[in-house]
Amino acid sequence: MLRLLAAAPNGLGVADLGNALGLAKATVHGIVRTLHQVGFVEQDRSGAHYRLSDAFGRLGETYLDPNELRSRAINWADSLASRSGEVVRVGRLVEGKVVVVHHVFRPDDSDQDLDVGTTLPPHACALGKAVLAFDTSGASKPKALEAFTTRTIVDPTRLADELAAVRAKGWAGEFEEHTVELAGIAAPIRGLGGLVVGAVGLTGRIERICDSRLRHRTDLVTMVRATAEAIGRDLRDDR
């Protein structure tokens, strides 16, 4: 099907594809829809014809430009910061480190410095765990786990369990694992085809992020997950 589309710069309709391949219309439709969802084919204005998108030719390149991720995330991240009252960051995994792609100040007008471009240890922060949990490259599995506080997870087996838990619940929590008295919550951002392209999360003092039983506040978890979902929707929709 991809070959047919590549040979037809003006695009092909579902019927054309079905005839050429000897497939039922419903089957073709299902395949085309999947290819469209992952961004390999695009629809023309009328919606009747499909053609190969240029993203297909760029498969080897970085999947999502980090600056594009920031552009898409900016409004949602602002809204999360203003509703939660906490610092918000968007990060992604690059060569085994979490790189901060976007940073929104805590909305209290105190002196804060932008840390876009700096890196964080993925095993020791919520943002990192949210992306590590969905990483398949393997290259990003840290070899030696550095301890930052007594609560940092340094045992690879424990980290694996923790990441499995993140996958199961769909968000990651952190509790004094990087800096004493700070806690965090993050959720993965899913781009085209459901691929995790980064994470968005907030960080703040324990007493604000956790409830009296030191569990991550469910209202904040809901907010963070909704933010990640909204950014992802923006990334997936705009095709």
């Binding site: 602002d78 910061a81 203003s82 940073h103 929104v104 100040f105 909305p107 209290d108 804060q112 932008l114």
Partner: peptide, 14 residues
């Protein structure tokens, strides 16, 4: 206007 001012918060600074 003062009430509105207190709603304004810095998100980033260069």
């Amino acid at each position: 206007l003062e009430g509105l001012r207190s709603n304004w918060h810095r998100a980033g600074q260069w």
